[in-house]
């Protein structure tokens, strides 16, 4: 019985360490978080961005391989600088933002993890949902854990806490997600290059 009483706190401590994930909120009040996209086209390549990023990522600095969570992009925030192009982009043939208000990326697992100091690089297997179509995506990502840097970023009145920066770049084919499938392939590339650099905050 005494032995059990000694072991139980140790088991509890071990469980606490393994469950030491920090939840980072990616709805950035500073408006820095941006997803950039690029499509090559015959007349003019199309570049744009989306600033409506949100979602929660659970990250354990001691064990980055346990990273889980979902990132969300508000499709209404998809932006290109030409108003006519933006109208097409938001319309039913392209992104159909009225019917599909969100793009989701769910982190599945991390492989080939390499951590040096506060920077971790890994191959992230996840699932990307666009226009209601969910497909697996593999992306090489860099995660930078900035312990205790939240106040420095948010100003003296800001909360204490940590920041997690995620950087990644990957490509998808628009026909895979029903984005103007099979149309204008000779004029607008099927491949969409996506890059993102986003920061999540975890106040203490």
């Amino acid at each position: 019985m005494k032995l059990l009483l000694l072991i139980l706190p140790l088991v509890g401590a071990a469980a606490h360490i393994s469950a030491d994930s920090i939840s980072f909120d990616f709805a950035d009040p500073k408006g820095v978080n941006t997803i950039n996209f690029h499509l090559d086209a015959l007349l003019e390549s199309t570049s744009g961005n989306a600033k409506g990023v949100s979602g929660l990522i659970q990250y354990d600095p001691q064990n980055p391989g346990n990273t889980t969570g979902t990132l969300q992009i508000d499709t209404k925030s998809l932006y290109v600088a030409n108003p006519r192009m933006r109208e097409h982009l938001h319309g039913p043939t392209w992104m159909d933002v009225a019917k599909h208000p969100d793009i989701l990326f769910t982190v599945g697992s991390l492989k080939d993890i390499d951590t040096t100091g506060n920077i971790t690089t890994a191959d992230v297997n996840g699932e990307l949902t666009v226009k209601g179509v969910t497909r697996p995506v593999l992306a090489k990502a860099t995660l930078t854990y900035l312990k205790g840097k939240l106040k420095a970023r948010m100003g003296p009145r800001g909360p204490d806490g940590d920041i997690l920066v995620i950087r990644t770049k990957f490509s998808i084919n628009r026909t895979d997600y029903g984005i103007n499938s099979g149309q204008l392939i000779d004029r607008v590339s099927d491949e969409i290059e996506i890059s993102l650099s986003i920061a999540g905050q975890a106040p203490n």
Partner: peptide, 15 residues
């Protein structure tokens, strides 16, 4: 137009 900026703490380049 997009004006490039740098977040000094996270070193994220954004616009």
């Amino acid at each position: 137009e997009e004006i490039p900026k740098l977040d000094p703490v996270t070193e994220i380049e954004y616009s």
